[in-house]
Design a protein around this nucleic acid. Structure first.
Lengths: 136, 136
DNA sequence: TATGCACCCTGTAGCAACTACAGGGTCAAG
DNA sequence: CTTGACCCTGTAGTTGCTACAGGGTGCATA
């Protein structure tokens, strides 16, 4: 399959596929006589793995480790679990942070009573951390 | 006050202060005879505004608009409210996304039973979107 | 007086993870 | 035989910083 087909099959931008190849996340595919990239099912599976992992928020380096692991079926699975667990912890931390932030923003937005900028409670709140209820 | 003092007073990296000046978020300060930047209270207040807004997740461009607004006290406050409300909506959207993601990751991590990579449920789940319960 | 040290300056390059060209080649249909 | 869709390489841009390299300044101490 050519790069456009792989792109459609996986919902990945063509430029992104070439980028993944450039950084060594995807192997270099064979080329046709016209120097077009030619992909097979293993490429598609690997790209699907990468995209799915990216959607779940794993970094490229984490994905590299996970791919290394799956390329070596005899290795112990615990590293995959460790990477995923650590990532889960980061996501939970991010949710906690954003929740504080949302509460703060809700308070700030709620203060708006219209009028001119000189009296704007939103602008006032942004300039003065003292109005905040939580650390962020 | 010199840049190091401003840095300590606002908890902002020196390089970041110079970066904000370069992109026009902070005005160019006066210079001493030795060409050192010399800041006053208005600079500190403006930088505090910027940092606080950044902590709340506003983009540089949003902050630019908010600063323009506060520089012109006669303008209507509604744009500030609009920017903050839109940002709040984005934060809520992000929380919702991350919550789905967290649930998916929790499911994936929970599947790990140890063993070798060939049988790894984590790696399997990453390679196959079909295991997922929600869109992400 | 020398010298160390903390601080300041400019300018440029790097980070993540793409995205967007510019400027060209290939191929099948009408 | 030309039009249009597709492909190629290489480079530069995005956001919001951060990290140098290579230099100058200012003050205290030996």
């Amino acid at each position: 399959m050519k790069i456009g087909e792989l792109s459609r099959a996986t919902g990945t931008n063509i430029e992104t596929i070439r980028y993944y190849e450039r950084i060594g996340l995807l192997p270099e595919p064979d080329r046709t006589a016209a120097n077009y990239r030619s992909y097979g099912d293993p490429h598609r599976a690997r790209l699907t793995f990468v995209r799915h992992s990216r959607e779940l928020g794993f970094t490229i380096e984490e994905i590299r480790s996970l791919l290394d692991l799956s390329d070596d079926p005899a290795r112990d699975c615990s590293e995959a679990d460790r990477i995923a667990s650590r990532h889960l912890a980061q996501v939970e931390e991010k949710i906690a942070q954003l929740t504080l932030l949302r509460d703060e923003l809700t308070r700030i937005v709620g203060r708006c009573r219209g009028g001119v900028a000189a009296d704007c409670r939103v602008i006032e709140a942004l300039g003065d951390h003292g109005h905040c209820e939580s650390a962020h």
